[in-house]
């Protein structure tokens, strides 16, 4: 009975495409600040969804709620129908959501290779059993493959803390991929990169879609997010103010106001 209901409702949420993630009326308040205000949206399978908004619009708070770092005050988050609220961060990760951090948070005193190896899904779920591993071979191979993908294989034995800025951002992505995610959240992946690096990164991110089922990118760089995203959501004061194709969203008067400031401020 229940199963039949689920089958009939699941695929209809977003224009025919299957919803990978659905967020419904999410609220989060910090003291006097409403960081998220009844925010609803969905991520469809196979898409790159961009989220834009001025500083303090609640973008990072949104990622932190979805990945379990913050507990939302109300609302629902579902990954392919599985409720994510009240789950610990590591459980949410194991269900298939990975992320990078806006203020690069690598394990700085560990090597580049170790940063990826340590969170490889197959081995990180059974920590004590890993004591009995007879060979590092498979771990090394999987980790190097991911580094290769983000063009970091030649840096494998460097300390993560010694990487250049753009490399560190790419390592954040490689590390997130190591958890075997279905959905990947990138929090300002191009921050601090030059134009050339940004263009390559956009190409790299599109290429991830053969490995993950969806990517959500938060970004300030308008050119970058416009070229990268299939769909855009604009946020301000914790609310969704626009949603649609990139050109539609950037034509929206409210979005222009939020970015360029209002005259009546």
């Amino acid at each position: 009975m229940t199963r039949r209901t689920e089958l009939s409702t699941a695929p209809t949420a977003h224009g025919g495409a299957t919803s990978l993630l659905t967020v419904e009326s999410l609220c989060k308040r910090f003291g006097g600040l409403q960081a998220l205000d009844h925010l609803s949206f969905a991520v469809s399978t196979g898409e790159v969804l961009g989220i834009i908004g001025p500083n303090g619009a609640g973008k990072t708070a949104l990622i932190n709620c979805i990945t379990g770092l913050y507990q939302a005050d109300s609302g629902a988050i579902r990954l392919d129908g599985t409720d994510l609220s009240n789950r610990a961060p590591h459980q949410i990760s194991r269900l298939g959501i990975a992320r990078t951090f806006q203020n690069i948070r690598l394990f700085r005193r560990m090597s580049v290779l170790e940063n990826v190896a340590v969170v490889l899904k197959r081995w990180s779920q059974r920590p004590l059993r890993s004591l009995l591993l007879r060979s590092d071979g498979p771990i090394r191979k999987s980790a190097l493959q991911l580094l290769d993908r983000l063009r970091l294989a030649d840096k494998a034995d460097l300390l993560a803390g010694n990487l250049a800025y753009g490399e560190a951002r790419r390592l954040e992505i490689a590390r997130a991929l190591a958890t075997g995610p279905r959905l990947l959240f990138l929090d300002e992946p191009a921050a601090g990169m030059n134009e050339e690096e940004t263009a390559t990164l956009a190409h790299d991110i599109r290429g991830l879609l053969d490995q993950v089922q969806g990517v959500v990118v938060i970004e300030h760089d308008i050119g970058f997010i416009r070229s990268l995203s299939d769909r855009l959501i604009a946020m301000d004061y914790g609310r969704k103010i626009a949603e649609g194709l990139p050109q539609e969203v950037f034509a929206n008067a409210q979005v222009v106001d939020a970015y360029l400031g209002r005259d009546d401020d």
């Binding site: 590591h90 394990f107 170790e114 591993l133 190591a178």
Partner: peptide, 22 residues
Amino acid sequence: SHLQRMLDAVREDEQVAAALGI
């Protein structure tokens, strides 16, 4: 061991380690 690596990650940044499945 791999376990040592995981412990190092927890010691370096517990929040990040948890967010990545540890």
